[in-house]
Amino acid sequence: MSGILTAAVHPTIPDLITFIVAGLMVLAGAVGVILSRNPVHSALSLVLTLFGIAVLFIAQQAEFLAAVQVIVYAGAIVVLFLFVIMFLGVDKRENIESDPLRGQRPLAVVLMVVVLAAVIALGVNAHWATGVHHLVGRTGTPASNTARLGRSVFTTYLFAFEATAGLLVIAVVGAVVLARRPPESTGEADLEESEALGTGSDADGELGDGSAAALPEAAAAADESAEGMAPAGSEPA
């Protein structure tokens, strides 16, 4: 196990091919997420990255996490992204050539390069991994990886596991509260709001490309509906 920490190891050809292919998948997917004009294409590029990460997990004897990665990330989270994209109807090309904040992109490139160089320099200085071996428990063979991970989660990390359950319940309740329509706007104000939103999206569609020109109209419509809602909400009170 200490051989991994030293730099002078020669990987076998299948390992090398797996690493290169999966690494290219990861990086190509990440570039695709950033450069796609259409959010749907970004989500599909994200799937490519997640599968590459799952392959790298398997290459590092983390079989259970690879399965969870595919099921939870590619299966649930990306589907949730796609659902929201379709639900909101933002699956159209957007203009990513314009740079509203002048000089933001060069600064972002500089920051990215600096962060990358700093992290790699820190890793080289620290010889990548220092610390106690087998502190919590051994990783085990591929066959026993899931059993060892389960034993670790349900003994050493039991409190964190229970806190996780609480976090998930809070997230579900929060999502329901956030996504629900406010109960005050169930009357005619609700109708007005949906009409206003309808005209806003119509104007958006006529102008085509998603468009800064349609925004003042939509904003005005949203303001109108907000004004229409206020008396309806205050009367019963």
């Binding site: 920490l5 990783t139 998930l168």
Partner: peptide, 26 residues
Amino acid sequence: SRMLGDIGGQALVFFVLVVAAAEVVV
């Protein structure tokens, strides 16, 4: 986790996954 032969890193990934799911939902 692989370099140190320690299962704790993989357990931590498990929790990061859960937090990521909650973050996306909210």
